[in-house]
Design a binder for these strands. Structure first.
Length: 563
RNA sequence: UGGGGGAUGGUCUAAUGGUAAGACAGCGGACUCUGACUCCGCUUAUCGAGGUUCGAGCCCUCGUCCCCCAGCCA
């Protein structure tokens, strides 16, 4: 697979420029990056940006990109998340080869480094409570005060730290802190906690440890151990960089990677934070983490997004330091572009209305040849059964059509795609409801295939399925989860108030062409004139498809009507 | 009123002292057996004020606005 598809001719983003400079100057002969998720939740489209960046840079420079789980907080982490994260990254098309790591692999080394820090007089065991530590830390504008335990002897610190590890003290009773500067204007430098007691089993190390290292201390050392050259993270870690550098400058680590921060992804019409996504799942607003309306990787997969579309989206939005909101339309555009190239075309009628072709022989069934992709003849053709009774789309007939309506109506002629020209004769309405229940037409036998030998022009072409051979197929129409571009913009309004009540519509009466019966769950198709759909991975069975709408086609008629 | 970042069309991204470019959105048109695709055209931007320079989005100065930081989370 050519994963570099969209990275070829674009100008380099600022991170890739730094990397190119480092290569050119000889600072580095090779590049090593890493993707460092915490296994405490599912990956979403925002992570995809980071994945594409880190693995993309790896691919471009023939350098590895390590997969490293940042698993230093066992109270939140589970191996189930490890599995799902690996699955999602692989599905996105990336491969870490043998470079699978866990921060927990480094617990022994991390401990040894901490002992070194103590020996250097650069770390101390502090007995202050959490609350006291906060009080001593000072505020944004006032310096902090030194802990009364700050000047403990090295020997005492060593002893206490060893006993912390041995489990002699209660959770929360003591921590190990780096001794830096309580007056620093950067709060992260005011003697940050680097180890805390957590009497919790770890998903990988079990009960071996009851003290666990903190992120700031762990991440930089893990990077250094692995020989990472460029450690890419999001903007909120900018303030942490001085601490990242302090640890690596203080300790004799194998190398000193450079941390570079970039802006995280924000998308309109959705929420991105783990906390809010969790609320949607736990509150039953969506049907789980892989609900097709969710922008989790698993949700996108279930929705039918090809990984290549997500990759090209990530390439398109670029990397910068400015906080930005990408319009959902850009993501949708990326899927349409991708699927337009690859998805076979198919006939599917979502809101069937029966058409009876009065002059067509009752028992006859013809086979009409239909292209699988009009622009790609190499994708071949299939045969569509045609007969006297067919279904067409409810919206393709109007009793009183407005101007510029090209479809079927009284006294009109339209083309049935790949079949015949038909002309309206009459319609039958339900006596009680007034609803149109069937339409009678005649066909022109001379127009087989869809072209009139007399050269007469027919503006409208509509899709159809043969009533007898059609396959009933439940369809779910998905739409944006929220009705406003920035659902979580207002602090005093619950973002859930903006949930789109029509984000999922379930249609039970859809009729699709028989070819769908032979398709594998997960396959993507275009229902001509309607949109891209996929056969649901879970609910579709061979021969009994259930389809999800991935995205609609652009629809200039709908736009016209909206005016 | 501490520290760290950031400001280019409606939204993203580029221009690395030398014609402000591309994508998405929008508008208009062509083509069309998908009102799709494709193609053509158009509208819309350098936060402000000074300065340096032949020349500034880019360099300097002073402002303005926005974001992040006071977890024993990552």
């Amino acid at each position: 697979m050519d994963i570099q598809e969209n990275t070829q001719e674009k100008p380099l983003d600022f991170i890739r420029q730094i990397i190119a400079d480092d290569l050119r100057s000889g600072k580095h002969a090779a590049i090593v990056t890493r993707f460092p998720p915490e296994p405490n939740g599912f990956l979403h489209i925002g992570h995809a940006k980071s994945i594409c960046l880190n693995f993309g840079i790896g691919l471009e420079n023939n350098g590895p990109c390590h997969m490293r789980f940042d698993d230093t907080n066992p109270s939140k982490e589970e191996s189930a998340y490890v599995e799902s994260i690996m699955r999602d990254v692989r599905w996105l098309g990336f491969d870490w080869g043998k470079n699978l790591f866990y921060a927990s692999d480094y617990f022994d080394q991390l401990y040894d480094y901490a002992v070194q820090l103590i020996r250097m007089g650069k770390a101390y065991v502090c007995d202050l409570t959490g609350e006291q530590i906060r009080e001593y830390r000072g505020t944004l504008t006032e310096p902090g005060r030194e802990s009364p335990y700050r000047n403990r002897e090295v020997a005492e610190n060593l002893d206490l730290f060893q006993r912390m590890r041995a489990g002699e003290f209660d959770e929360g009773s003591r921590v190990l802190r780096a001794k830096i500067d309580m007056a620093s204007p950067n709060l992260n430098m005011r003697d940050p906690v680097i180890y805390r007691i957590l009497k919790v089993a770890h998903h990988r190390t079990g009960d071996r440890w009851c003290i666990y290292p903190m992120y700031d201390y762990t991440h930089c050392i893990s990077d250094a151990i692995e020989g990472i050259t460029h450690s890419l993270c999001t903007l909120e870690f900018e303030d942490h960089r001085p601490l990242y550098d302090w640890v690596l400058d203080t300790l004799a680590t194998p190398c000193h990677p450079r941390q570079i921060e970039f802006a995280r992804l924000n998308l309109t019409y959705t929420v991105m934070s783990k906390r809010k996504i969790l609320q949607l799942v736990n509150g039953g607003y969506v049907q789980g983490w892989d609900d097709p309306r969710m922008l989790t990787i698993s949700g996108l997969r279930r929705r039918g997004y090809p990984p290549s579309a997500i990759r090209s989206f990530c390439a398109q939005i670029g990397i910068g330091k400015k906080e930005s909101w990408i319009d959902m339309g850009v993501l949708e555009d990326a899927v349409r572009n991708d699927l337009n190239e690859t998805a076979p075309r198919v006939m599917g009628v979502l809101d069937p209305i029966k058409v009876i072709i009065d002059n067509y022989p009752e028992s006859r069934v013809e086979e009409m040849e239909a292209q699988n992709h009009p622009q790609r003849p190499e994708m071949g053709a299939r045969m569509l059964p045609f007969s006297r009774e067919i279904y067409i789309e409810g919206s393709d007939f109007m009793e009183n059509p407005p101007k510029k309506y090209f479809r079927l109506g009284p006294d009109r002629e339209v083309r049935l795609r790949y079949a015949y020209l038909i002309r309206f004769v009459s319609m039958v309405k339900d006596e009680k409801t007034g609803e149109i229940v069937e339409i009678h037409c005649t066909y022109d036998p001379a127009t087989r295939g869809g072209t009139a030998p007399d050269g007469r022009k027919v503006k409208g072409t509509i899709h159809w399925v043969s009533a007898n051979q059609a396959l009933a197929c439940p369809v779910r129409l998905y739409d944006r989860l929220f009705t406003v571009a920035h659902p979580d913009a207002e602090k005093d309004v619950d973002f859930k108030d903006y949930l789109n009540p029509d984000s999922m519509k379930i249609l039970d009466n859809c009729m699709v062409e028989p070819a769908l019966a032979g398709m594998e769950p997960g396959s993507q198709v275009q229902f001509e004139r309607q949109g891209y759909f996929c056969l649901d991975l879970i609910d579709s069975k061979k021969g009994r498809p259930v389809c999800n709408r991935i995205v609609t086609l652009r629809d200039s008629w709908a736009k016209e009507q909206g005016r």
